[in-house]
Design a binder for these strands. Structure first.
Lengths: 348, 348
DNA sequence: TTGAAAGCGCTACCAA
DNA sequence: TTGGTAGCGCTTTCAA
């Protein structure tokens, strides 16, 4: 009869009202069959479903939002989606959300508190049902101010100061300490005792946590504070290179190096090789992050892999569960793990 | 289930109605001062603004959407945000959108047509005002079917088949040919005539376009089809390594290599060095993409940089302009450009 | 310049 | 099981 589906869609939105007319039932009935919110007779139910298909009906989310006071949307606020670490985390969160019919609104704060605050405001406005913030740049108070009664999940390298009890805030810890501990243990169990650390950017929490664990670990195995070998590598390849050069000069006794990220680990390997020594025969190196180039360098860098994707999944699952989506199964708490490649060897 | 949450929310949203009461004016008046849609007396206007501030009023976007039939949201559908190329493009799009009070909903189709179609449906539902699709996995018809009268911007490596005139579809070309042409010209102007090509994945448009330009360029400088040297490297490091080994064996006359991406370029350099030859003294290599590791390898890889961020900006500007946001200034059409590093040298 | 009121499309309550 | 109906918060028309 006249118009094709496309044409009809093209002009005006098909509403529940038209479905009702087409199927010869009332608005309420249509709503009920669409939402399975009451039992409807087989007959009418089929009529509605047919009308829906015929007219190409799509529920208007705006109307639903207005009525239900939810948007089936979760905000995800992170430092920078261009960083593969956060990109993978975002994928995990997104996939988890999608499998429960939720949508994710991803925003980058560029580690800039003002930009973050603008997003906080926008997201609160956009009626997101909950928000996941990775490495919050503002204070927890600020965050609560905008998201007052809504669900909040914080993902960070360290515990943030906020009352744990009766709070709508949940924390996921990135577990930097655990990862660093795995790295140190691996060097230790390979016989290394003179272990140096190439630290990352002092400003970053993750860097601080990794360094802290290095210190604690060394202390635990009986090394005094003054004997710690720590150089700063600013998380960059050249930083790692320079830091390693310094270590080679000042601490020739070092046989194991724990670099706070892979880039510095690779730089360190280069410095060792340039000095005529070999990796891992003379000095073992372990990195952190498991970025792609660790596969291409010589030797391939042994490193710590963070469960980025799983962290995202986990955080999202937490948020959805708190929103009352009780068919959500919370995944196991993701753990860091060791990726054994070629750059660490038993001390000779 | 959600009940406890609802109850806990307790304090209800501040609505325009409460503002009206507080300010002692009518609903319409409040709306008018908020939207500057009619002139309101100085006195009442101030009263409204004060009430807004006092009660912390935030307009309900759902209600606005319902009434205005727009969401100030643009969908961005791309293969995979985990790929730095798309991540940067997304940032460009996002920044452009944000500066005009629009929000971006980013979705990954994983190059999977079914997944993409699900998103098409979700996005159409979510009342996005327009959609930007990077490397559409479905047909243009399918896309139009979902987004019938809405604004559509397509970003792709090649022209997609769709009527250009009077269409609500706009195309942005990734200009692979231009980039490949720059690479080939650079080798050519450095005296190279025996140029080999390491091609990427045959399935990908970008790879095909780059290869096509290699062929055309060689033809233009008088090389016959049979003399072309093309090996497949599947876009991977090892693929590039193997491809280069084959070339070294079969075509020792080659002095210049154009790799369809940086990973293969780096693999090729390794193969050349492993064979006892030098880069760039004996053989010059140029890559494509300008990924980070090109800075760490030896020698540093000369390459082509795609204006990813700018492409995203441009595509978004196109969409916003089409939506009637006329204060949007369309940026210059972004171009590919050469990044000169160390891997190409004048032929000796 | 202002206020009243009619919806936008949907859900959910109540009565039948 | 069904239908009627009252809003959700906002914009906008129409009178005043």
């Amino acid at each position: 009869m006249g118009m094709s589906v496309q044409e009809k869609e093209g002009r005006t939105q098909v509403t529940i009202r038209e479905i009702a007319k087409e199927a010869g039932v009332s608005l309420g009935t249509v709503s009920h069959v669409l939402n399975r919110t009451a039992s409807v007779s087989e007959e009418k139910s089929r009529a509605v479903l047919e009308a829906v298909k015929k007219l190409g009906y799509k529920p208007n989310q705006a109307a639903r939002m207005l009525k239900n006071k939810n948007s089936k949307t979760i905000g995800l606020l992170l430092p920078d989606i261009g960083n593969p670490f956060y990109a993978e985390l975002a994928r995990g969160a997104e996939d988890m959300a999608n499998s429960h019919e939720y949508t994710v609104l991803v925003c980058n704060n560029d580690r800039n508190p003002e930009k973050e605050e603008r997003y906080l405001s926008t997201l609160a406005n956009k009626q997101v049902d909950g928000i996941i913030v990775v490495k919050l740049a503002n204070s927890v108070e600020k965050l609560k101010q905008y998201f007052a009664p809504k669900q909040i999940v914080l993902i960070d390298s360290e515990e943030l100061p906020c009352e744990r009890e009766n709070s709508q805030i949940q924390m996921v810890n990135l577990n930097e300490r655990e990862g660093a501990s795995i790295a140190m243990n691996y060097l230790y169990h390979n016989g290394h005792r003179n272990i140096a650390h190439i630290a990352g950017l002092l400003e970053s929490n993750s860097s601080r946590e990794r360094k802290r664990e290095y210190c604690d670990f060394m202390k635990r195995i009986g090394v005094s504070e003054e004997q710690l070998v720590i150089e700063n590598g600013t998380y960059s390849y050249y930083g790692g290179y320079q830091a390693m050069k310094t270590i080679l000069n000042r601490n020739p006794e070092v046989t194991g190096v724990f670099a706070a990220n892979d880039l510095m680990g690779m730089g360190a390997m280069q410095a060792i090789q340039d000095s005529g020594r070999r990796v891992p025969e003379d000095i073992s190196v372990i990195g952190y992050d498991d970025i792609e180039p660790t596969e291409y360098c010589t030797p391939k860098l042994t490193t710590i892999r963070q469960p980025k994707y799983e962290m995202g999944q986990y955080g999202m699952a937490l948020a959805l569960k708190a929103l009352g989506e009780d068919q959500v199964t919370l995944p196991l708490l993701p753990r860091n793990f060791l990726i054994v490649r070629q750059s660490v060897q038993r001390k000779r």
